[in-house]
Design a binder for these strands. Structure first.
Lengths: 248, 248
DNA sequence: CGTCCCGTTGATCCCTATCAAATGTAGTGG
DNA sequence: CCACTACATTTGATAGGGATCAACGGGACG
């Protein structure tokens, strides 16, 4: 193996789950590793989708920029996940930009290899379908939230999801594993950095979170869950019922 | 063939594109056709995903219900599309409900058959991946809109998308092909039926649309596009720039 | 021909974006 | 080691887009 990428690195990735070792070796022989510093782009929105990737270490941010120049954070990529598979879905170009939010390591393959992987191993196709299915599910959950919930709930849920996927137990609580700004959280929840700042300030006041520059730590997960479920300031929200409650 | 479903019915579906005839015959022999009247459910949110389907004729609505009882329209299914493929993404239950909005005909297969189709024909797997990829793309577009655009733009875009997928040329303009209420449009765009009603009234006033009970016809597509692009009431929106424009 | 459902429209309120400005914090180069 | 700078964060004041509340009008269907 010219690249000396240990097979174990890839063996545990969801995308390659249950793929036989001999196929893995082929996969690895073509893989091109890449190191990234914080802020480095992996690819840019609109570029031809020449490669697809797996994140080995670090954290990436996937961002869509609107015609008006506003940004929306599509998702954060965590180690082990595939990304940049636009070509696999027959899209010629990346629909979003992807950049490292901290030092990261990715593995890349030419998009053309995707079809080879699919044909040579059926399990690979099923794994890919599941991965995309999961993302579709997440996207629908987000649409539901943006459509029906208030900002406080959405931000609470956002933090919960972040500590769920990238939480790190510390002395003070569960910290988000990577640098993230108020602006980032705003772009994930469809609000403004000002509103996020106000919410975090209020929550810090109550001891629910600890905050620092580009850092958030959750101290009281249960309280945050309660907020996400809708136990916010609106004390009299009758929880959308079809028929009015009839007093006996 | 016990069911006498003509092969031509399935041959042109995206999901079965480029699938050889002999495989198609197998597919057809297992297919179970189903007729639906307006309002009939195909499956309900939370039910075990025992089948997946293709819509042959009519229109279906996919709806998610929140814990608070509010509804979000995930999408409308148009003839030729697959739906209910939760199991293919390894989800045990349907994440949303699906019901006919008019007389419709669907073809259903047991979920277990999915894997057989995948294994027996690679093209099928690729087609499925592309279909889900397209939906993911649509979902992201919607998230972007909900996050950054105002109600007027979102509703305008919604109508445009509807006439694009289900528009029918009439003497008066392009009509949406199936019955749809203000409430439905509201649930697609994250607003209320009142706001949608007001917008449609205003647009009718200007001759941009024609409206009827459960019917919408677009007369001036270009004007609607202009609205969707952001040419709304906000005359002074500085289009989110990083640096202020410097006069020479 | 009555009843349900869909649609329309006015009045009011409030959540949250927007505007404005100060404070704090990491990094940098002298 | 400190001044300087760029960026992140905080916080107050204000305004406005839409949700909400309330009522009525109208077409379809049994």
């Amino acid at each position: 193996m010219s690249h000396s990428i240990p097979r174990s690195l890839v063996k545990n990735l969801d995308l390659f789950r249950a793929v036989p070792d001999k196929d893995l070796d082929t996969v690895l022989s073509i893989a091109r590793p890449m190191r990234l510093n914080a802020g480095d782009p992996v690819f840019q929105q609109g570029q031809p989708a020449t490669q697809f990737f797996v994140l080995l270490h670090g954290h990436l941010k996937v961002v869509q920029t609107t015609a008006e120049g506003e940004q929306v954070v599509v998702r954060y990529v965590i180690p082990g996940e595939v990304f940049g598979i636009a070509k696999a879905m027959q899209r010629p170009a990346y629909p979003a930009s992807c950049l490292a939010v901290e030092e990261s390591v990715v593995l890349g393959w030419p998009s053309a290899e995707w079809d080879r992987f699919m044909t040579s191993n059926l399990q690979f196709a099923a794994n890919a379908l599941q991965a995309v299915g999961q993302r579709l599910h997440d996207a629908h959950a987000r649409i539901k939230e943006l459509s029906t919930e208030e900002v406080e709930q959405r931000v609470a849920r956002c933090l919960l999801r972040l500590i769920d996927s990238s939480g790190e137990k510390t002395d003070d609580g569960i910290a988000i594993n990577f640098p993230i700004t108020r602006q980032d959280i705003a772009e994930m929840t469809g609000t403004t950095l000002h509103t996020v700042s106000r919410l975090l300030s209020a929550w810090k006041e109550q001891g629910m979170v600890l905050t620092g520059r580009k850092r958030v730590t959750v101290r009281k997960v249960d309280d945050l869950i309660r907020l996400a479920e809708g136990a916010g300031a609106c004390s009299s929200k009758p929880a959308a019922r079809k028929k009015p409650v009839e007093p006996a």
